[in-house]
Simulated assay, not measured.
Amino acid sequence: MDSLRPPDQFKDYVLLEQKAVGLQLYAMHAIQGFFQTEEHARALIGGGYPPLPVEELYVPPSRRISSSG
């Protein structure tokens, strides 16, 4: 297989990506709360787009939820 050419099953995706103005991916990489560290939770919360300001990462979830509605 030529390393510069994608496998045949991806040829349609390559054409779509060439025409795309944006690309979004979805993948579950979350660890359930019981096993999740504070650092991991902050990385998940702050990893969106647009990114949250650093000070927002330290707002308790209860305050974040009550101020969003």
Results as ranks from 00 to 15, higher is better:
residue 1 M to L: 14
residue 2 D to S: 15
residue 2 D to N: 15
residue 3 S to F: 13
residue 3 S to Y: 11
residue 3 S to D: 11
residue 3 S to H: 10
residue 4 L to A: 14
residue 4 L to E: 15
residue 4 L to I: 09
residue 5 R to Y: 03
residue 5 R to C: 06
residue 5 R to L: 11
residue 6 P to F: 14
residue 7 P to F: 15
residue 8 D to A: 14
residue 9 Q to D: 14
residue 10 F to W: 14
residue 10 F to R: 08
residue 11 K to S: 14
residue 12 D to M: 09
residue 12 D to K: 11
residue 13 Y to E: 12
residue 13 Y to T: 05
residue 14 V to G: 00
residue 14 V to W: 11
residue 14 V to P: 00
residue 15 L to S: 12
residue 17 E to L: 15
residue 17 E to A: 15
residue 17 E to I: 15
residue 18 Q to F: 05
residue 18 Q to A: 14
residue 19 K to L: 15
residue 19 K to V: 04
residue 20 A to N: 05
residue 20 A to R: 05
residue 20 A to W: 06
residue 20 A to L: 08
residue 20 A to Y: 07
residue 22 G to F: 09
residue 23 L to A: 03
residue 25 L to V: 13
residue 25 L to K: 09
residue 26 Y to D: 09
residue 26 Y to S: 12
residue 27 A to R: 10
residue 27 A to I: 12
residue 29 H to M: 05
residue 30 A to K: 03
residue 31 I to D: 03
residue 32 Q to Y: 06
residue 32 Q to I: 07
residue 33 G to A: 12
residue 36 Q to A: 09
residue 37 T to M: 07
residue 37 T to W: 07
residue 37 T to A: 02
residue 37 T to K: 09
residue 41 A to M: 08
residue 41 A to T: 02
residue 43 A to I: 09
residue 43 A to H: 08
residue 43 A to K: 10
residue 44 L to P: 00
residue 44 L to M: 11
residue 45 I to Q: 00
residue 46 G to E: 03
residue 46 G to F: 00
residue 46 G to D: 00
residue 47 G to L: 06
residue 48 G to K: 00
residue 49 Y to Q: 02
residue 50 P to C: 01
residue 52 L to I: 02
residue 54 V to R: 10
residue 55 E to F: 04
residue 55 E to T: 04
residue 55 E to R: 05
residue 55 E to I: 01
residue 56 E to Q: 08
residue 58 Y to K: 11
residue 59 V to R: 02
residue 60 P to W: 03
residue 61 P to M: 12
residue 61 P to E: 02
residue 62 S to F: 03
residue 63 R to D: 13
residue 63 R to I: 11
residue 64 R to E: 02
residue 64 R to W: 14
residue 65 I to S: 02
residue 65 I to R: 06
residue 66 S to V: 13
residue 67 S to Y: 02
residue 68 S to V: 00
residue 69 G to N: 05
residue 69 G to Y: 04
